[in-house]
């Protein structure tokens, strides 16, 4: 956690410095004769300063705990990638972002949703060395869940809630 805190602390310092500089550059609206303490940059600058303080404390604390020694090795990264949990996480993120960020809007909504659910179920329930009967059943199940869910969600949002689907 000390290493993660070190990185977060540095990220917070950079973020807060950026916020303070941006706030400083915000207009003072002198031509409107507004009160100098009501200008738009006051509160973001205040938040930036508090975050700068917290980021500095977090960084110093993590350095004291040895967090600055990141020890990034190829072996460590490989182990991170080979962890089954992390692989599931990566696959979930790729599929979800691929669906929500790219499929939606480029394919008809029902088709995109059905495709996403079908691929998701199939990939996560696929086991190496499955018998062909089990594989067939897996494909059928995934297709059934995908069709029913996609149809139900499309129908509910389009007809019941009158949402014009993407």
């Amino acid at each position: 956690m000390a290493r993660a805190d070190f990185i977060t602390g540095l990220a917070l310092i950079f973020l807060s410095l950026y916020v303070i500089i941006e706030s400083w550059q915000m207009p003072r609206l002198e031509h409107l004769k507004v009160h100098p303490l009501s200008v738009p940059g006051v509160v973001p600058a205040f938040i930036g300063m508090v975050l700068l303080l917290f980021g500095t404390v977090l960084t110093i604390r993590s350095i004291r705990r040895g967090g600055h020694r990141l020890r990034l090795t190829e072996e460590g990264l490989r182990r991170l990638y080979q962890d089954p949990g992390n692989q599931r996480l990566l696959l979930t993120a790729i599929l979800s972002i691929g669906y929500a960020g790219f499929l939606i809007g480029n394919l008809p909504y029902g088709l995109a949703t059905g495709l996403f659910i079908f691929v998701f179920v199939l990939l996560f329930e696929w086991e190496p060395g499955m018998s062909s009967a089990k594989r067939r059943r897996g494909v059928m199940t995934a297709a059934l869940i995908a069709t029913l869910s996609s149809a139900a969600i499309t129908l509910v949002f389009e007809r019941l809630f009158l949402v014009s689907l993407p």
Partner: peptide, 29 residues
């Protein structure tokens, strides 16, 4: 493995449905 894709689909469409903006789907992500 069957529940989560459906939950995510609801996350995406739920975010979109408020103002019909795909931008909100990116906000959710």
């Amino acid at each position: 493995t069957r529940l989560m894709p459906v939950v995510f689909v609801l996350c995406a469409i739920g975010s979109y449905a408020i103002t019909n903006r795909t931008f909100d789907i990116w906000v959710m992500i």
